[in-house]
Amino acid sequence: MATRGKKYKEAIKLVDRQKRYDNIQEAMEIVKSMTSTKFDASVDVAVRLGVDPRHADQMVRGAVVLPHGIGKTVRVVVFASGEKEKEAREAGADFVGADDLVQKIADGWLDFDKAIATPDMMGKVGRLGRVLGPRGLMPNPKVGTVTTDVARAIKETKAGRVEFRVERAGIIHAPIGRASFDADKLAENFNALMEVLLKLKPATTKGTYVKSVTISSTMSPGVKIDRTLF
């Protein structure tokens, strides 16, 4: 049996483990109070969905732009050439390139958090599948990272665009901010995420869609939210 640390044992006293919190703001306050890390901990949400991800039509995947961002600088690289290259630079991309960028990444450079590509670059970017794919960095039209509107994609990503997808056990994990955020800002971010998640409910799912929602910060106990709110 895993043993718990002192801080965790202290933190768990602050939360009622049996209660399902219906006041999001209150839940956020508790999460903030439980945080005892020396760094600015991230606040994360875990939502268990009533979907079977083994069926392709029940795969929940999407992205949401959080109104208050996630409090982290996102390093973006853009595969683009010509006009689009200029557009990307102006929009604040950290690195823009075409063949040179492909080569740089193929040589082992992976110092970025997100990759965006214009459709006309996909033939070249495709070659990086084995490098970017396993790290979840491969640009994909389905989540808006293969687009002609690179400026918007960069701005959204920088502003706090969070991608999520259901994992094997039917759970979505996503960050919604930092412990230093105000509780109301965290609550707004949370609501934005849940709104998108509900919109993505697959037509083929049966029974309850949102089975449980838990909010926690890095290394803290979880605070359970009343699922009937959704």
Binding site: M121, M122, N140, P141, V146, T148
Partner: peptide, 29 residues
């Protein structure tokens, strides 16, 4: 990807997205 590079259009891009998504979900990468 080669087709999208040569003649980018919405239908092709959407098809690429679907295939890439299926590939990633099945553990292709």
């Amino acid at each position: 990807q080669t087709q999208v590079q040569a003649h980018p259009n919405d239908a092709l891009i959407a098809a690429l997205g679907e295939k890439q998504h299926a590939f990633e979900t099945a553990g292709g990468y």
